[in-house]
C-alpha cells in the first residue's frame, strides 16, 4: 500500500544537496538489502510454484467445468464484494472518527478495532455465533422480533468476512487520513463548509488512493476468509460454501481437486488485484 506524503520535510532536501555524489548512482543495490529481498521473494513465490508443479493439468478443464466449482467461485466473489461494501460503508467513517475526533478512550477503541487481526478467525466465528447466533445476545432478539437468523445464510458469510476484513480497511484509511494535509479541511471550514461537506468534498477525494488501497486489501482478505466463515456460516454448497471452504473439504479426499480450486482462486484474485492496482493505486 503506498500512501503519498505531501509535505516533504525541508531537511531531506538539504541533505541531498550536501551529498551530490549519491544522486548520480541510482542503481547499485546494497547486498544487505538485495539478499534478504530475494530470499523473501522466493519464500513468497515458491509455495505458488509448488501448487503449479503439482497441478493436474490433464484433468484441469474437466474439473473446472464442474458446477460446484463455478458456484463456489460465484459465491466467493459475491460475498467478498458485499463484505467490502459493508466495510467501506462502516469502516471509512470509523477511520475518520479515529483520525479526526478527539474523544476519551480513543486509543482503546483503536486497539479494539484491530482485534480481529490477531484473533484466530475460528475464534472470531465462535464470537459471532455467541452474539449473532440463534441464541446469541443480539441474534436471539433478531430471531424473536423479525424471524431473522444469520448463521447458515449467505448474509452470514458476508458478516463473517466483513468482521475479519474490516480492520485492514480501517487501518489503511486512518493512515491516509493522518498523512493527508489537514489545512485543506481547515480552508474549507473557513470558507463556510460544514464538517460533513468538508469530508465529502475535500477529505474523501484527498484520501481516495488510501481508501481504494484499503478496499482492495479488505476484498482480498474477505476472498480468502476461511475460519470465521465456516464457523459462523457453516458450509453448504451454493449458499455458504465459498472457494476456501471448497478447497479445505476437497483436501480431505481429493488433494488434486483442492489444488485446482486453489489455482482458480489464485488466478482470479491476482487478475483482479493487478487490474485494480494499475488503475487506482499509484504504485511507482
Amino acid at each position: 500500500m503506498t500512501l503519498s506524503t505531501r509535505s516533504t520535510p525541508p531537511t531531506a532536501q538539504g541533505e541531498a544537496r550536501r551529498r551530490p555524489g549519491r544522486s548520480g548512482v541510482s542503481g547499485r543495490v546494497p547486498w544487505m538489502l538485495l539478499v534478504p529481498a530475494v530470499v523473501g521473494m522466493a519464500f513468497l513465490v515458491l509455495p505458488l510454484a509448488g501448487l503449479l508443479a503439482r497441478a493436474p493439468w490433464a484433468t484441469l478443464a474437466r474439473r473446472l467445468a464442474e458446477p460446484q466449482v463455478l458456484e463456489a467461485l460465484r459465491l466467493s466473489l459475491l460475498t467478498a464484494t458485499a463484505a467490502t461494501a459493508v466495510c467501506l460503508l462502516l469502516g471509512v467513517p470509523l477511520a475518520w472518527l479515529l483520525a479526526r475526533v478527539d474523544f476519551p478512550g480513543r486509543r482503546l477503541v483503536r486497539a479494539l478495532v484491530t482485534v480481529p487481526l490477531v484473533l484466530p478467525p475460528v475464534v472470531g466465528g465462535v464470537a459471532l455465533l455467541l452474539v449473532l447466533g440463534r441464541r446469541g445476545l443480539i441474534g436471539q432478539w433478531l430471531d424473536d422480533a423479525f424471524g431473522v437468523t444469520l448463521p447458515f445464510t449467505t448474509a452470514g458469510v458476508v458478516v463473517a468476512e466483513a468482521f475479519v476484513a474490516m480492520p485492514f480497511l480501517v487501518i489503511s484509511v486512518e493512515g491516509a487520513l493522518r498523512a493527508a494535509d489537514r489545512r485543506f479541511e481547515e480552508a474549507a471550514a473557513t470558507l463556510g463548509a460544514s464538517r460533513w461537506t468538508a469530508f465529502r468534498r475535500v477529505t474523501l477525494p484527498l484520501i481516495a488512493p488510501g481508501v481504494v488501497a484499503g478496499g482492495v486489501l479488505c476484498w482480498a482478505r474477505a476472498l480468502g476468509e476461511f475460519g470465521a466463515t465456516i464457523t459462523f456460516a457453516g458450509n453448504f454448497p451454493g449458499r455458504t460454501q465459498t472457494m476456501p471452504l471448497a478447497v479445505y473439504l476437497a483436501l480431505e479426499t481429493e488433494p488434486e481437486a483442492a489444488i485446482v480450486l486453489s489455482l482458480v482462486l489464485l488466478a482470479v484474485s491476482v487478475i483482479i488485484l493487478a487490474c485494480l492496482r494499475d488503475k487506482w493505486v499509484n504504485s511507482p
Binding site: V126, F152, I230, A233, G234, F236, P237, T240
Partner: peptide
C-alpha cells in the same frame, strides 16, 4: 443447513 468440516465442529 450445513455440512461441517469435522465432527467436533458439527457438535459445536
Amino acid at each position: 443447513v450445513t455440512l461441517e468440516q469435522d465432527v467436533k465442529a458439527t457438535l459445536t
